[in-house]
Simulated assay, not measured.
Amino acid sequence: MPAELPASLGCDAVGIPARHGARMLTRLPHAGCVFSDTDWWWWIVPEGSDLELAWPLPSYYSRGARVPTASTRLIHWPEDASPYTPPIPLYLMVCQITGTAPAWSRYEPRSAQEV
Rank of each mutant, 00 (worst) to 15 (best):
W41Y: 13
L51D: 13
G10C: 10
F35C: 02
A31S: 14
F35H: 09
R73M: 12
S105I: 04
R66S: 13
P109L: 07
S49V: 05
Y84M: 03
A54V: 14
R19K: 11
P109R: 06
R19C: 09
P86E: 11
W42Q: 01
E108A: 13
P83N: 09
C33L: 15
D50A: 09
T100Y: 05
I88V: 15
P56S: 01
I16H: 02
A18E: 14
Y61Q: 04
E4R: 12
F35S: 04
L9V: 02
E47H: 12
L74Q: 08
L5P: 09
T98A: 15
R63F: 07
Y107M: 08
R106C: 07
P17A: 04
A81L: 14
I88C: 08
L51R: 12
V67F: 10
L90C: 01
E114S: 12
H30Y: 14
Y91V: 03
R27D: 10
A54S: 13
G99K: 02
T69S: 15
Q113M: 11
R23C: 11
F35V: 01
P46G: 05
V45H: 03
A31N: 09
A3K: 14
W55N: 00
L74I: 03
V94H: 02
L25I: 14
P87M: 00
E114C: 06
V67H: 04
S71V: 08
I16Q: 01
L74W: 07
R27H: 12
M1D: 12
H30C: 07
L57D: 14
I75Q: 07
S59T: 15
D12E: 05
T98M: 09
V94Y: 04
